[in-house]
């Protein structure tokens, strides 16, 4: 019996979403980044097209997170308090393809920085790097709505990725994105139907589908990654099968989620069997990122430079395999 490769053809195609705008398009970015466009499961070049490879971003902070691990502080010591300089280092030294600016410090309980201060931070990052920028908020609705309105205006025309809206709080931020030419992240809590519902709500306000990236909510290794993993596989399968409201690229956060857990930070003397903490933190993030890549991640926001390096290298290597099939 001769062996014939069983191929699966899909009715659907993941929407292509472009982040960033160059001078011609009214922004100041040197390049844009496009994700999506896949017609088969991740890296299945043998049965479909993947015109754009998954990309990796790194995160900088308006206020250094209280749980930021020592191993990362050591690597960013001289720039960590200056988001613009840190962004430059992430791009030039570590190879970040986008920068995420975290505005966690505007949360009333985590610094209460003002909307105007947030806008200054975003402006500083846009000036110091020329890659597309993601702007990442938090869950305090009232405050983040105020902040995002201001920030969207300050970055008008740059087509930033505004991260994020959720079902209980999407109108204000989505409207600001439309008004000032940005793309949006639609976040839903690890559930296929809720993800779809939010995309429908956004479509109902005539938010263009090619300006939406889905965030299925990242759970990290050891803390429920299997839920995120399976929801992403289901979303991608449904999207490829032809469900347009799920045929969108996906963003995941292996960096911020891995950094929060005990495994990335606990000293070796407390858990000798866990191995060296510096390696462990990077390994945790790498393992989370690689699993979620297999499940359909298109944009990964990373924290550890070694994790970013090796994940990016793996993505490029996997895309070279299309020459072989």
């Amino acid at each position: 019996m001769a062996f014939e490769i069983p191929k699966q053809t899909n009715a659907g195609k993941i929407i292509e979403v472009t982040i960033g705008a160059t001078g011609e398009a009214g922004g100041t970015r040197a390049n844009t980044v496009t994700i999506g466009g896949s017609t088969s499961l991740p890296f299945h070049f043998f049965e479909g097209d993947h015109p754009h490879r998954p990309v990796v971003a790194m995160e900088v902070f308006d206020k250094v997170p209280p749980k930021y691990p020592d191993s990362l502080t050591d690597r960013f010591r001289d720039v960590i308090e200056t988001p613009g300089d840190m962004a430059k280092k992430c791009v030039e030294e570590f190879g970040a393809e986008l920068i995420s600016v975290s505005l966690e410090g505007t949360h009333p309980e985590k610094g209460d920085r003002t909307a105007a201060e947030a806008a200054d931070t975003v402006r500083a990052v846009l000036e110091s790097v020329s890659v597309p920028v993601i702007i990442t908020g938090h869950s305090h609705f009232e405050k983040i709505n105020e902040v995002m309105k201001k920030v969207c205006e300050a970055a008008a025309g740059e087509n930033c990725l505004i991260n994020y809206v959720e079902t209980d709080n999407y109108k204000t931020i989505a409207a600001a994105c439309m008004a000032y030419g940005h793309t949006v992240v639609a976040q839903s809590p690890i559930d296929v139907n809720l993800a779809k519902q939010l995309n429908i709500l956004l479509s109902d306000m005539e938010f263009p589908r090619e300006r939406i990236v889905m965030d299925p909510l990242t759970s990290t290794l050891g803390y429920g990654i299997e839920y995120t993993y399976s929801i992403m596989e289901r979303i991608r399968n449904d999207g490829l099968a032809g469900d347009e409201m799920l045929a969108l690229p996906m963003l995941v956060n292996p960096g911020s989620e891995s950094m929060r857990v005990k495994e990335a930070r606990a000293p070796e003397k407390d858990y000798p069997e866990w191995g060296a903490p510096d390696l462990r933190g990077a390994y945790w993030e790498i393992s989370t990122a690689m699993s979620l890549l297999a499940a359909g991640a298109d944009l990964l926001v990373m924290h550890h430079p070694e994790a970013l390096r090796v994940v990016r290298k793996s993505i490029i290597e996997m895309c070279e395999s299309k020459e072989r099939v």
Partner: peptide, 8 residues
């Protein structure tokens, strides 16, 4: 020798 080929 290629991770992508191995996955496929």
């Amino acid at each position: 020798g290629n991770l992508g080929s191995e996955l496929q």
